[in-house]
Design a protein around this nucleic acid. Structure first.
Lengths: 220, 220, 220, 220
DNA sequence: TATGAATGAGGCTTCATTCAT
DNA sequence: AATGAATGAAGCCTCATTCAT
């Protein structure tokens, strides 16, 4: 006698599960088709529940989109915080952070796409979300620590802005994912092969490290 | 004898002008709202002509979008070709190219947004467009020349891929525009002030030059 | 021995209070938005109890509306019955009744609006309500008495129908409240100022008294 | 051989006809069920055209309702202007005007119902309609003329406000139609028989004339 | 008696597109 | 080459109501 999940009487109320299920499905749809491109009907069909529940939990399509965005940021930042850099030398720590960011973005294309979409919408939903206040700190704090330690050790140049450094790391890591389609279409290169991606990441790390290590007057 | 060009009839027939007008208006709309977000009705209303003409000239909404995309690429590449780097030393040439690209992207946010949108659509329209064949060459040829000259002069490292270098320059220049909304929303920094943008560009140039000048074993 | 009235259990059971609370809230909502315009959700939210209770006590939305209507009529007629006209001369009594009715309607706009709504619905709910039998009597009886006394005293004309007289008094008193919005919007007059309302009421009294006092042949 | 309207190829474009048809159908529906009670689907079904055209011509349900309201007022005021009172003595003119108004309202119950509905909505749509400015004048001007002539002839009392007089005439004429359902339900009288209506109208005329003819001190 | 979760039916509206002139 | 009218399909959303606990 087997234990089967009784499919004809699965009368289990699971609000959190329902909410999460909707969120997961719709995140994929929004990432795939954009805010106006995604279809509530389609999202509902892919869900374990009904269209009605989407409105019950999220109010409207925009509310659902906003919830997806917030969930995505929360999830991503949660991942970043697991990274332990405290024990490493500042240059090693930074190298690890850059490599991690590059890989992390690459492994979370849906998040990248949501951010792209949010940028298309001029960050309208991000601006009106309370999640912002909690998010910006972590990454910048990490970098501030590394920079300070690097400067104290005489490894890094003096004038370094943690926000700018975050921008630079993000640029290289984000663009890699966001513009893969057009870049691949325009240049039939090997950059998006497994090997090419490893090279790209290594060189991104290299660029950042060369930049922070560069003392004025040395070269330019 | 036929009556050609009846000048007293107030019917202005200007196919090219009409086409161009539609293209300009719709490019702005697509850049602003995305492919599914833009409205054919709205585009027609902003046009000097009527909705019928859009279908007459471009077939359907997607056709119009494709035409906008092609026009945007053509226009942008035309701008890039005006840049004369032949007379400069390779490092100066590269510095100028990076700075130019950074500024160029910054001044053409609608183009950037169209590319973002095209990436959201997985480059589906770019892939099926004949424009590709003509576009990829110019930028890469430029870079290939600079790299060769730089290597011959002993200024640049050996293993440099022009496509990868283009990717790196693009990443820094593109992200600056594409992610301005979310970045500004998340970090209230000065990076998008006039001063901040100059710094960002200078450092982008610096990063690229440090990278190509770096000889193995020197640092990492 | 049973435990009655467990006072230390914080569960307030107050059926009558709950019913009344629902009735009060929903009367306002129906008066404000009409039968189809009112929202069960909104009513429930404004209530001290939950949506389930509405259905428990009133069956459905229409049942709730019917209950509101009945409660409104009961309440209004109760107010009217407090009026004591027995000791007054018939003309004074009538004058007082008209003035009272005018003021009474003015002070109970929600009741007027419920009656308007019921008229929009062709009195469908009133027709099927047992309240009718008890309501029509009071006002008419009052008027019948006054008329008889007035005629006996030679003050009033002969052919007077109490129901018609009620109609006439009602018309002037009801319209004043029911059509205030459109009338105010169409004519920017002073009729709805405090002073204007007093005048309107005085003239309503005057109109009715002139009418009942008028003997055939005198004027027209 | 007969001339039949070819029903299978009625390819006649008739924008005005379509608009009017929609307006007629929807006026009935709004008058019957109210703004929120009316159904766009039902309106469309009763129309010679499709639901889509409703939105093409009127924007949305509220826009359609507003158009109905404006059309109703226009139509009614047009009817009133046909009334020629200039050649009559002031008391006869007023008598005719009151009688006409009473009958006119009685014959246009849908208009009355639309006004009732608009009052339920606190005249929100009337307020924001430009039609107002043109409508209020006609009726008041008529009355002003009659009053002046009556006063000059020594027939009417001195202190008469044309707007108030309009209010009084309207009250008796409007209430007769608006409250017929509840009044009939509450009092099983003969007031709404053919005979009763004639009486009611005659007495309305009488009330108004007695009122305007009444000189201070005579009675009250 | 009480509550949050759930729902089917149907509401209003908008879209890209085509037609008749 | 040009225009206003017309449209079917599908979009998003809300309603009164019931269910499971």
């Amino acid at each position: 006698m087997e234990l089967e999940e009784r499919p004809n009487k699965a009368v289990k109320r699971d609000p959190k599960g329902v909410r999460l299920n909707i969120l997961r499905v719709s995140s994929k749809e929004f990432a795939e088709y954009g805010l106006s491109g995604a279809r509530v009907n389609e999202i509902a069909a892919l869900t374990k529940t009904s269209k009605r529940m989407i409105y019950y939990y999220f109010g409207d399509k925009n509310g659902l989109y906003r919830a997806c965005l917030e969930a995505a940021y929360s999830h991503v930042r949660a991942g970043e915080e697991k990274l332990d850099l405290a024990g490493l030398a500042p240059d090693k720590a930074l190298a690890k952070l850059v490599g991690f960011t590059f890989d992390h973005h690459r492994k979370n294309p849906d998040f990248i796409r949501l951010v792209m979409i949010e940028n298309i919408h001029k960050a309208a939903y991000l601006k009106s979300s309370d999640i912002i206040r909690k998010v910006n700190s972590a990454a910048i704090k990490n970098l501030t620590g590394i920079i300070t330690r690097g400067q104290d050790a005489g490894l890094f140049r003096d004038e370094l802005d943690p926000v700018e450094l975050h921008w630079q790391i993000s640029a290289l890591s984000f663009f890699n994912v966001s513009n893969k389609p057009t870049f691949s279409a325009l240049f039939n290169s090997e950059l998006y092969s497994k090997e090419g991606q490893r090279t790209l990441r290594d060189h991104a790390v290299e660029m950042i490290l060369l930049y922070v290590s560069h003392k004025k007057g040395t070269l330019l």
